[in-house]
């Protein structure tokens, strides 16, 4: 069992070891849906929800699979749960906010292949967190992802007005901005262990 206190797990996942900027998980939506702050924030919300649900499910699955002695099925079980949760979120969003559904576009179903979510399920299993710790970890990871996405979108909104040399335009400039953001997040390194 892991004895790490809850708040330390949360801060660690959200800031110190930010999923996007330190672990490089979920880079595709990070580069793809970070053009507008409003869309970025809602995307963050959707990802956070999927993270919470799949983290709880992953916790249960891990213990069931251990009990019946088939840990090699873990990966397959995790990805199936994540895919179904994403399907659910997609249906909910399509029903309640068609505009948001259009804005997120292809990146909504692609949450399935968002490695941040699968990564979360795998890391929490590796570190043997208990149930409450899992919740804190999932919440921290979700907050961290949303924070990174919104910060990035804010910078890119400004960047569209700036005169950027056209060889750097597009993905290259986004990557440079991400690199600088990642450098600044290293300033949090003193806050937690690991």
């Amino acid at each position: 069992m892991n004895e790490q206190p809850i708040w330390s797990i949360f801060v660690n996942a959200a800031l110190v070891n930010n999923f996007v900027l330190a672990y490089f998980l979920g880079i595709c939506p990070f580069l793809g849906v970070s053009q507008k702050v409003a869309t970025a924030a809602r995307m963050g919300g959707a990802v956070m929800f999927v993270m919470l649900v799949s983290s709880v499910c992953a916790f249960g699955i891990h213990h069931v699979l251990l009990a019946i002695g088939t840990p090699f099925l873990e990966l397959i079980a995790f990805i199936t749960v994540i895919a179904s949760t994403v399907q659910l979120v997609e249906m909910i969003i399509r029903k309640f906010s068609p505009a948001l559904f259009r804005a997120l576009g292809i990146f909504l179903p692609l949450i399935t292949t968002n490695c941040a979510i699968l990564g979360l399920a795998l890391f929490q299993t590796n570190r043997e967190y208990d149930f409450v710790q899992c919740l804190a970890y999932a919440l921290g990871a979700g907050v961290g992802f949303t924070l990174a996405l919104v910060l990035m979108a804010g910078i890119r909104e400004k960047l569209t007005l700036a005169p950027v040399p056209d060889v750097v335009e597009g993905t290259a400039s986004a990557l440079l901005v991400a690199g600088i953001l990642s450098l600044t997040f290293m300033g949090f390194a003193g806050l937690g262990a690991q």
């Binding site: 993905t171 990557l175 990642s182 450098l183 290293m186």
Partner: peptide, 25 residues
């Protein structure tokens, strides 16, 4: 050291993309 840290990954990929674009141009 920065090249081994996470931010180095972003920078290196950005520079490869820029280099390839200049070459294509």
């Amino acid at each position: 050291i920065v090249m081994i840290l996470p931010s180095g990954g972003f920078f290196t990929l950005a520079f490869w993309l820029i280099a390839i674009r200049i070459f294509e141009r």
